[in-house]
Design a protein around this nucleic acid. Sequence first.
DNA 1: AGATGTGTTGACATTCAACTCAACTTTATG
DNA 2: CATAAAGTTGAGTTGAATGTCAACACATCT
Lengths: 114, 114
Amino acid sequence: METKTFGQTLKEIRRSKGVTQRQLAAAVGVDFSYISKVENDRMPPPAADTIVKICEKLGVPPDELLAMTGKMPTSVKEAIGENPAAQQFLREAQTMTLTDDEWGSLTQQLKKLR
Amino acid sequence: METKTFGQTLKEIRRSKGVTQRQLAAAVGVDFSYISKVENDRMPPPAADTIVKICEKLGVPPDELLAMTGKMPTSVKEAIGENPAAQQFLREAQTMTLTDDEWGSLTQQLKKLR
DNA sequence: AGATGTGTTGACATTCAACTCAACTTTATG
DNA sequence: CATAAAGTTGAGTTGAATGTCAACACATCT
């Protein structure tokens, strides 16, 4: 399974939306040359918060691009950082090295809570 | 509830174990003056991985000190970063702003898995 | 008092992520 | 072709995190 790079994926999405690098960069608040480099994988993916802004401008959910980077938005990191119970949960989860299915099962439990 | 600072807490633990700043610093691999500054809250708490090493030397679980900083060890961050299912879970959890009890309940579910 | 172990302080250093800026090249358009 | 819009490249910048180093002070032991 030849996985596409972050840059390739971003470039495809951007083009499919008919947005130029300069337009995207302006909306996000970065230099357009930076977008170019990211799209050609000359630089690592942007900060998570920048990815979120990019996806807002492009009108797509940020999940796919975020998942490719292994980064979490500031909002999520803060929510965890402020909550020892959440930290505890994560440390336990890490020592158990859960499978994808197990994470999925937990996400189900999550939805049952509300 | 007058919460103790990170520095105060560390200093107490270290003294209770009869370890000097220099001994601790040497075991952890930092300069002893850095320990001093952290203990007196002249500097922010160390990196999560350094906190873990400190706790290893002092023979205490890192949970309390880590919880005070809102930081996660590299091992945990990596485990999450490499697992889109885990990321998905966390983004969902964040939008729900779970209570401590709810996190606790999830930690229970976690243990049921094995 | 002198030496030795311990702790404190101020200034400075290092590393890295996440970019910016200026110059250039390529592509599309009239 | 001429012009402009779009994209690429190399070098440099900025800020935050995480410390180091040298100098000094204090306490204790002999």
